[in-house]
């Protein structure tokens, strides 16, 4: 564990807490893409298949349970909670995310570290996480104005993988046989997808204006 990875995990945790706060405090999921939340649920379930077979540390196990639990809880809320689901606008959340699932799984079948059930699903989860934010970003562009909590949720979610890139650089220079090129390349793509959001977020913060993404 290094400071960059810990900062990344904490930033990821904060993004989840901000999202839970928004949904539970405002009893509304306006501006949140259910499809992105479903994709993240698939990402965590596919990545943490070793949850009960490989014990790394208490921290690792606890965080995995938090990530799986929170993503499934949000999906459940947006689908079945009688108050929250009313604020879900499926007319703006129209990204066909099943293509992302199919495409990433196909890619994982061809590009993986080892052709085993767990490694293919692990690579699949890494590729899928890189593009999972797309429905959310498209929705924000469609819905124009972004409420503060939703903006902060996306900001922290984008920042966490940026910290992981620093972690991979650090591990590359400090550990000899470190080679996580699947994570690195996907992590770079993932963070790059947030680039324009970060730009407009910074502009709105600088001008102390409401965050607006150009359609």
């Amino acid at each position: 564990m290094n400071i960059f990875r810990f900062a990344g995990d904490m930033t990821h945790l904060i993004s989840i807490l901000v999202l839970l706060l928004k949904v539970y405090a405002t009893k509304s999921c306006s501006g949140i893409s259910l499809k992105t939340q479903e994709l993240y649920g698939i990402v965590f379930l596919a990545r943490y298949l070793d949850l009960f077979t490989d014990f790394i540390s208490v921290y690792n196990t606890v965080m995995k349970l938090v990530f799986i639990g929170s993503s499934l809880a949000i999906v459940w809320c947006m689908r079945f909670h009688r108050v929250v689901k009313r604020s879900y606008d499926r007319d703006v959340d129209t990204f066909r995310h099943y293509f992302l699932v199919g495409g990433c799984f196909l890619l994982a079948l061809f590009v993986h570290e080892k052709f085993s059930f767990r490694e293919v699903f692990w690579a699949f989860s890494i590729y899928l996480e890189a593009v999972a934010i797309l429905p959310q970003l498209i929705l924000l562009q469609r819905s124009g104005n972004v409420d503060n909590l939703t903006g902060q949720y996306v900001l922290f979610l984008g920042a966490y993988r940026g910290f992981y890139i620093l972690n991979w650089i650090y591990r590359y220079f400090t550990e000899d046989q470190f080679s996580r090129w699947i994570s690195c390349v996907s992590g770079l793509v993932q963070t790059a997808l947030y680039a324009d959001f970060f730009y407009y977020y910074f502009i709105s913060w600088k001008n102390n204006a409401k965050l607006k993404l150009p359609a």
Binding site: R47, D50, N60, E113
Partner: peptide, 10 residues
């Protein structure tokens, strides 16, 4: 063979 070490990152 290279034992794929358990992925220690989240």
């Amino acid at each position: 063979n290279v034992e794929t070490e358990a992925h220690d990152e989240l």
